[in-house]
């Protein structure tokens, strides 16, 4: 998982780097276009195109039958039954390509979420940096407040903290951004020394709200930053970035909605030139 994420991070950073200063939709549209082409290509090769074409013809025939015999109730019911059966067969035939598509699509969406789902801090903004201990590591806090230190580079300051919340197994600081930059905050917690990226930037760039300890599931969900090794049972180091909305032709919305609309739109436009039956 670690190596796959590392490769994907580099790949997406390179692909999206030219669009970082441009409007949100430019990079998103390019990725959506590439995804549409990729999905159509996979769909064509992993589906039974002849069967799909035949099923679609049957559906069309059923619709035509309803239109032609609209005064013949038994014929309409018969046609509708045929359409439903054809639809079920259609879904069955699209299952294999969907299974092929879903895994790479998940990785793409996960990477895009960390480019388009969050906004970087702006100078003057505050954010909360939290070290979370894994379950069972509460011993650290048994004797009172565990010793922890946060070292910040110039450009970031500690505003308040740390606050030890034993019930949450969390140690938190409120930090402030003073100027633009791509920073590394260093947290010392017991024997662990962990760095965490903190980005003060208005452009579209990869943001990691959560750096996690090594582990398949955690890395799958939070691929935006390399995992760390821990001896103190630290689960993650988090920072609160604000959510980002993208401007989709004047409509400010979550990037995923815009991305799905674009991907589906491109796929419909390209299916004929690419000779794909969907």
């Amino acid at each position: 998982m670690t190596w796959i994420n590392a490769a994907l991070r580099v790949g997406f950073d390179i692909v999206l780097a030219p669009f970082s200063g441009m409007p949100d939709m430019v990079g998103l549209a390019v990725v959506a276009l590439v995804c549409s082409i990729g999905m159509l290509w996979v769909f064509k090769r992993t589906s039974n195109q002849d069967a799909l074409a035949a099923i679609k013809s049957q559906i069309h025939a059923g619709l035509f039958e309803i239109r032609l015999f609209n005064d013949d109730l038994p014929a309409i019911f018969r046609a509708q039954t045929q359409i439903l059966k054809a639809n079920a067969r259609y879904l069955w035939h699209t299952l294999p390509p969907m299974l092929w598509i879903i895994v790479p699509f998940f990785f793409v969406v996960a990477q895009l979420q960390f480019h388009y789902g969050f906004a970087g801090l702006a100078p003057g903004d505050s954010a909360i940096l939290t070290v979370r201990l894994s379950e069972g590591a509460e011993e650290l806090g048994k004797e009172g407040k565990p010793s922890a230190a946060l070292e910040l580079p110039a450009g970031l300051v500690v505003e308040v903290g740390p606050v030890w919340a034993p019930a949450l197994r969390e140690m938190s600081w409120r930090i402030g951004a003073e100027k633009f930059g791509d920073y590394r905050a260093a947290v010392t917690f017991g024997d662990d020394e962990i760095e965490k990226s903190v980005v003060v930037n208005e452009e579209i760039t990869r943001l990691s709200p959560n750096r996690v300890a090594k582990g398949f599931l955690a890395e799958l969900i939070y691929p935006a930053e390399p995992p760390f090794e821990t001896t103190e049972g630290i689960e993650s180091v988090e920072i609160t970035y604000p959510d980002r909305e993208v401007n989709f032709f004047g409509w400010r919305t979550h990037w995923l909605i815009a991305f799905f609309i674009l991907t589906i739109g491109f796929a419909f436009l390209l299916r004929t030139p690419m000779g794909v039956t969907i």
Binding site: V160, P162, V163
Partner: peptide, 27 residues
């Protein structure tokens, strides 16, 4: 809402729904 009070320092973490804030006394 929950206010997690630091055992030593005059600071606390406020958690309301998905929102969290860190406040020092007087802030």
């Amino acid at each position: 809402f929950t206010l997690h009070v630091d055992p030593e320092a005059p600071v606390a973490k406020l958690v309301v729904g998905d929102e969290q804030r860190i406040l020092a006394v007087g802030e």
